[in-house]
Simulated assay, not measured.
Amino acid sequence: MTVLSVNVNKIAVLRNSRGDDLPSVDEAARVCLEAGCGGITVHPRPDLRHIRPDDVRSLARLLQGRQAEFNIEGNPFAPARGAYPGLLALCAEARPAQATLVPDGDGQITSDHGFDLRRDGERLAPLVRELKAMGCRVGLFMDADSPDIERVADIGADRIEIYTGPYAHAFAAGDHAQALDACAKAAERARAVGLGVNAGHDLNQANLGPFLRQVRAVAEVSIGHALIGEAIYAGLAATVAAYLAVIRSVND
């Protein structure tokens, strides 16, 4: 069965906007785990815009001894900066089950493309070896229509993560057949060379089912932005009711 790994970056965005410790990233992860998710994902960046290195360390402690996996995403080429020690250094500390390498930069609001392995493959190969020596399974973020899917196996990674943003946008526009077919073909190509298949970006409750029905044998989906946004609505009424109950108890 496909594992759901919940990306808790957006909890950190909300916390950082106030400059305090609330909402708690650890507590959000704990709730997700107790609800049955199979993993927690974070994507720390050098600019510390959301998940910070201390969050990574704290979540590693939280996940220790649990069956759920820790997945750390990030750009392996981004140098250490200030409190950010670099992706490989964080992985060496946290020892996640999986490291997902993503070619993002500070100027991107979010990840919006996969690796070009004809350009970056030689630089990635030794970093992949280093991560695997730490005990990490390694995935590479790849576009569904990339000509380089098979090269992921050549440089030693274990999985691809299909960038599903184009599929999600096409689904929202009501014309997703071509984008979905591209994802299915990418998964087939990956499995043909012995790679596992993950998927992530802009997946939500509406588009996930059609995706998984056509893109077979997906090992893991990483979902954050939509899931946290949906949780605001699903949990809001209960939270308001709880506050009203507190007020009534004071005034009774």
Results as ranks from 00 to 15, higher is better:
4 L>P: 00
5 S>K: 01
9 N>R: 09
10 K>L: 11
11 I>E: 00
12 A>R: 00
14 L>D: 02
17 S>C: 12
18 R>E: 12
19 G>A: 01
20 D>I: 04
33 L>T: 09
38 G>Y: 04
41 T>N: 10
43 H>R: 03
43 H>F: 11
45 R>L: 04
51 I>C: 06
53 P>M: 04
55 D>V: 06
57 R>T: 04
58 S>M: 09
61 R>G: 02
61 R>F: 00
62 L>I: 01
64 Q>E: 15
66 R>F: 04
67 Q>C: 02
67 Q>A: 14
76 P>A: 03
79 P>L: 02
86 G>M: 08
86 G>F: 08
88 L>N: 00
93 E>H: 09
94 A>E: 02
98 Q>W: 13
98 Q>N: 08
99 A>F: 01
104 D>E: 13
109 I>L: 10
109 I>D: 09
110 T>Q: 06
125 A>M: 12
125 A>V: 09
126 P>W: 09
126 P>F: 15
129 R>G: 12
131 L>S: 07
132 K>N: 10
136 C>W: 02
139 G>W: 05
140 L>T: 11
141 F>A: 11
143 D>A: 06
143 D>K: 07
149 I>Q: 06
153 A>K: 14
156 G>H: 13
162 I>T: 05
171 F>D: 10
172 A>R: 14
172 A>K: 13
178 Q>A: 14
179 A>R: 14
181 D>M: 03
181 D>L: 06
185 K>I: 06
189 R>W: 04
190 A>G: 14
193 V>M: 05
193 V>L: 10
195 L>I: 06
198 N>V: 10
199 A>M: 10
200 G>H: 03
202 D>N: 06
209 G>Q: 15
209 G>N: 07
211 F>R: 01
213 R>K: 15
213 R>P: 05
215 V>A: 07
219 A>N: 13
223 I>Y: 04
224 G>T: 03
228 I>V: 15
228 I>G: 03
231 A>K: 04
235 G>A: 09
240 V>H: 07
246 V>K: 12
249 S>C: 05
250 V>L: 15
